[in-house]
Every structure is written in C-alpha cells, then in structure tokens.
Design a protein around this nucleic acid. Structure first.
Lengths: 185, 185
DNA sequence: TCACGACGGAACGGTTGCGTAGCGACGCAC
DNA sequence: GTGCGTCGCTACGCAACCGTTCCGTCGTGA
C-alpha cells in the first residue's frame, strides 16, 4: 500500500517544480527533494517524468469546466472570461500552461493530454454558449465555435500570458463587450 | 579577426537548436555540434548561453516592423494580421517565440530583450494605426492602444500558437473584420 | 616567407541527473 | 511478536555538459 500522503506531496512538488524551472529542467531528483521524499518513492509510482506529468494533467482534465448559462450572450462570455482570467492569473497555472504548450510540440502525448484537459473542455463550453446564443437569435446560424473561442479567449491570453500586462478594473467587461461585437460581425 | 562565416553558422545553429530543444535544454556543446564548429569558437564570441540568445534577440529587434498605412482601419488591421500570421506560421519562430516568452519569466534580461524586440515594435505600429483611425473618425478619441493590440493579435496568437489550429482561407479577413467591430464597441 | 590568430578537435576535472540497489527504521496486519 | 512493504537515505556506474586548456592545422597580411 503506497502512502497517500507521500503521493500527494509528490503531486504538489511536481506542480511547484514545473512552475519554478519548467518541464525541460525538471528532474526527478528535484521533485523528490522538494517533496521531502526519496527518489524511490517517486519511481515506485511513475516510471518517468513524462508519465508523471501526463498523469497530473489528466487529473486536471477530470475536474471539468463550469458551463455558463446566464441567459444572454454577453453574460455567458463575461462569465467565461471570468473563469479564464481567474485561471490565468494563478501564478502556477500561468507558468505551467504555456510551458507545457511549448513542450507539447515536442511530445505528442503531452499535446494529447493538454487537448483533453483544457482545449476540449473549452470547446465544449464555447459550443454550448454559441448554441444558446443562436437559439436566442443573438448569433447567426453558421457561427464557427473555434473562431468564437479565438475571439473570446485570445485577447485575454495574449494580455495575461504573452504581454504579462495588468488587468485593469472593467477590462473584462469591455473585453466581453468587444467579443460580442466581434462575434456578430 | 573572427571569421564571419563561422559566426553566422553559430547564429543559425542557435535558432535551430532553440526551436528543436528549447532554451532550457539548449547547450553550448549542442550548438557547436550543429554548427560544425568547436566549442572554442562559440566561447570566443559569447560568454554564455544567455548572452548568446540576448544578442540574437536584439538582432531581430533591429530589423524593425513595417507600419501599415492603407488609408482605412480595416486595411491596416488586415495588413497587421498578415505580417503577424506570416511570422507565427514560420516553424522556427512559432517555436522559439513562445519558448522564450516562458523563459522570460525566469530571466528578466530575456524579458527585456523580448519586450524591446517584439512588443515595443508592435505597440508602436498599433499606436500609429489607432492614431490614424482616430484622425479619420473611425475610432473614438479615447481608444486604448494596448487593448486594441489585444483584440487584433490575441485571437490569431491563440489559434496559431496555443491551439495550433489551421488557418483556413478567408480567416484573416474575417478576423480583421471582427477586430474592427470589437474596437468600435 | 613568415608570424599571427582563429580554426576544429580532444581532453581535462567538476557537476548534475539518470535509474537501480541495498540499508536500517517504521507502521500495520495478522 | 512477527513479517512484510514502504519509508528516507546513501551510493553506485553511466551519461551529458560545463568552462578551460592545449594541441596541430590553415589562411591571411606584413
């Protein structure tokens, strides 16, 4: 019986290590060190760094994403941005996500895991939002879900992760407003 | 006198190595190997991996960015997107840029270099586009340049670098149209 | 022609991480 | 109380790079 508290300590350490040094530099030794655990304890649970990360990403995927249903396109978009901003402002997530995205181009398994954990979930939520908006007559029938996602999340991701700029009060409101206008165009 | 052809071979190798393995995994030995050059030749020119990369990024910065002046906001935005899409579809750039952006959070010097090389240039171009549009009455006086950049480049970056999705025909046209609508909202 | 300097290559000692093995200690089930 | 499995820890041989040093070679300018 593997001790659950040790397993949890390792999981936590992996996230911290991933944020601190990135996937490429992350080592099993470093994880064990940070977790206050022997290397053996890690190897007894996962066979490699890749397997370890894939397992954690999949665990995140299982959490799911709340689907907004506020009754208006603006409301739904605003809610979606709120969730996204909350996630991307988290210091660990905002570091780990782009790091793994880059690494994904070198490891197809990571790409698959990220797709399943993040992108698919987002796509599902966006599809529901678009479907509802079409039903209400707020959007044309032929609205493309992927394009909608680009327009809604893209600007926020750019600001928070690429430029790493501030998020002034009212920014999300304006962004939601702009996104709705963009979707209608 | 350092031989220019050797210097150039090293520069090329760094870009390739950066794209292939990323900054974290990149080694001086690997660069020299790829360039078909002795380690000595590299160390004779740059004192470290960081100095080497900073020098290359600065060189890119010196190239500058063309400022569109098509006479309409839509035309300017469309042109800007064309340039950005061209850059981000380049296999090396689309790998190196996000990699260095992540690394920038760990090395302030890289953050500064990237800012000088890419973000400042973009900001300048966007400022000119917004200024012209305001002068033509296409945009309100108080339009924020950073927000405009988020709305224009964000969706494209998201699609090309994050989702790594295709760029169907007419996508940029639609995106430019949406961005203009978003800016006016 | 000759001296100088950059060249590629090999080797140096040192560090770090790999994945594995063996250690005694501890805790839990029977 | 006895055994079994996991625990943290140390050590192993191996590999990759680090940054430096010393070769012998080659091209160029004086």
């Amino acid at each position: 019986m593997l001790r659950e508290d040790v397993t949890e300590a390792i999981r936590t350490a992996v996230f911290e290590e991933l944020a601190a040094v990135g996937y490429a530099r992350m080592s099993i030794e470093g994880i064990a060190r940070r977790a206050g655990v022997g290397k053996t304890a890690v190897y007894r649970r996962w066979k490699s760094k890749l397997a370890l990360v894939l397992d954690l990403v999949s665990a995140v995927a299982a959490e799911g994403l709340p689907a907004p249903a506020t009754g208006s396109l603006y409301g739904d978009v605003r809610a979606l941005l709120e969730v996204a901003a909350h996630a991307l402002r988290h210091p660990v997530a905002s570091q780990v996500v782009p790091d793994l995205l880059v690494e994904a181009t070198r490891h197809p398994e990571i790409a698959d895991a990220i797709r399943a954990a993040l992108l698919d979930g987002q796509h599902g939520v966006a599809a529901a939002v678009v479907r509802d908006a079409v039903a209400r007559g707020e959007l044309p029938e032929e609205t493309d879900v992927d394009r909608a996602l680009d327009l809604i999340v893209g600007p926020l991701y750019w600001r928070l992760v690429v430029v790493r700029g501030a998020l002034p009060a009212g920014y999300l409101d304006g962004l939601a407003q702009s996104a709705v206008a963009a979707l209608r165009a």
